[in-house]
Design a protein around this nucleic acid. Structure first.
Length: 205
DNA sequence: CTAACGATTCGCT
DNA sequence: GCGAATCGTTAGT
């Protein structure tokens, strides 16, 4: 299978990019341990007019610098002091859009994921939730800013397609304090997928 | 330098 | 369902 081309990541519509990432397959290959999973839940964060985004309206800090790269690099940051959250930077240089990968449906390397998660057998919590997913896949802050065209983290198109009615959109999780921006329905997930997190907020569009 | 705050998770009730 | 854990990042003194 082929890695997503660099043009995929230059999408100027971060919501469209978040939807198109559903069904794509995320790979990590660290220390000879290859893992993969189908992306089944994402959230879009826009560089402009989105208070929930770390790089809102051109905000610069050591942490947000990577947002201003052209799409196709990783953004990994630590939340609550413990959890590493993996995002894909999208859009052209200096636009600062990102897609948070929230849930995977595991495919390869499940033994490795179980080990990293300190679990004995697979259940639907293995790669459910951004912090759990990053831990299972071995992604940590040291992978912040790496290219998704490389051989450590990349995404492939396996021609998995979900019909529009099977893609649910809701408000993003944990963005309640971002005012009106936090209410935007920019979380996307695959309906009836066993690995998808929480069942609140249905809100078909 | 210091304090406040999370794009969360897990265990206990 | 609720609350604690936990520390890097950020903004303010």
């Amino acid at each position: 299978m082929k890695k997503l081309s660099s043009s995929f990541y230059l999408n100027e519509d971060v919501c469209d990019a978040a939807i198109k990432l559903l069904g794509k397959v995320l790979y990590t290959n660290f220390d000879g341990q290859k893992c993969s999973g189908i992306i089944v839940e994402t959230e879009a964060y826009a560089g402009y007019n989105d208070k929930a985004c770390h790089a809102n309206n051109g905000k610069r800090s050591p942490r947000t610098e990577i947002f201003y790269s052209a799409g196709g690099v990783s953004y990994v940051y630590i939340c609550y002091g413990i959890h590493h959250l993996f995002n894909v930077i999208t859009n052209k240089k200096n636009r600062a859009d990102a897609v948070l990968i929230r849930v995977l449906e595991p495919i390869d390397g499940i033994e490795t994921m179980l080990l990293r998660r300190n679990k004995l057998k697979i259940d639907n919590s293995l790669t459910k939730g951004p912090g759990s997913l990053a831990l299972a896949m071995g992604i940590s802050k040291k992978h912040n800013g790496i290219s998704l065209q490389g051989n450590e983290i990349w995404i492939e198109d396996h021609h998995i397609k979900y019909s529009q009615k099977d893609i649910i959109r809701t408000a993003r999780i944990g963005c309640e304090n971002s005012g009106a921006d936090g209410l935007r329905p920019w979380r996307y997930y695959v309906k009836n997928n066993a690995f998808v997190s929480g069942n609140r907020l249905q809100n078909l569009y």
